[in-house]
């Protein structure tokens, strides 16, 4: 049980650090204003390591933080929904992968898919709520989402091993899901 608590703390710290870096540091590395979504990558990493249950809960909590931390100004709950779905989907993928073995390319593909899913869900909820902001037609939206996918995949090799190691060290016996 204490292993679980330690893992939860590790996940929380990872999300917080990612959030601060994302708003303060990554804008300097942004390409045409699109920055890598560190929080999303951390949620995917947690879900791949710990499964869909943890992934969903951590995704929701991280999303609420992103929704509320400055300078966010959109309707709260949009990133919460998007990152929760990302955590769930990545966790379910992890279950399948546990049976078939893992690979670097597979991980990158999961991150790309989840980045696309997360950004799309966020943009779509914006359109539904009339909170679309600067969405500039479907073409512009897809451009931003696609750029985000590429950047997220690029930062994955830097983020994923850190989070995975931090979580696995806390509770080694969590392996062998299947």
């Amino acid at each position: 049980m204490s292993g679980r608590v330690a893992a939860a703390v590790a996940a929380g710290v990872a999300v917080l650090v990612a959030l601060v870096l994302q708003t303060s540091v990554l804008p300097h590395l942004a390409w045409h204003g699109v920055a890598p979504d560190l929080v999303l990558v951390v949620v995917v990493a947690v879900a791949l390591t710990r499964g869909a249950h943890t992934g969903t809960v951590v995704g929701f909590a991280a999303g609420v933080l992103v929704d509320l931390a400055p300078p966010a100004d959109h309707v709260a709950g949009r990133w919460a929904l998007a990152l929760m779905l990302v955590g769930y989907v990545a966790g379910r993928v992890a279950e399948d992968r546990a049976a078939r073995g893992t690979g670097v390319l597979g991980t990158l593909a999961v991150v790309a898919a989840c980045s696309f899913l997360g950004s799309s869900v966020f943009a779509l909820t914006g359109l539904l709520l009339g909170d679309a902001g600067t969405v500039d037609g479907i073409a512009g939206l897809l451009g931003v989402v696609a750029t985000g996918v590429v950047l997220d995949v690029l930062v994955t090799p830097l983020v994923m091993p850190l989070v995975t190691r931090a979580l696995e060290r806390r509770e080694p016996e969590r392996l062998a899901v299947r």
């Binding site: 710990r50 499964g51 869909a52 249950h53 943890t54 969903t56 809960v57 929701f60 999303g63 609420v64 929704d67 309707v75 709260a76 709950g77 949009r78 919460a80 929904l81 929760m84 769930y88 966790g91 379910r92 992890a94 279950e95 909820t125 709520l129 909170d131 899901v177």
Partner: peptide, 24 residues
């Protein structure tokens, strides 16, 4: 194992919706 129960998913989705409604 490792998969969230339907009730948790439902609760979290509803929490998201409530946040959106409260903030909208």
């Amino acid at each position: 194992p490792g998969r969230p129960p339907g009730s948790l998913l439902l609760a979290l989705v509803l929490a998201c919706a409530s946040l959106m409604v409260l903030d909208h």
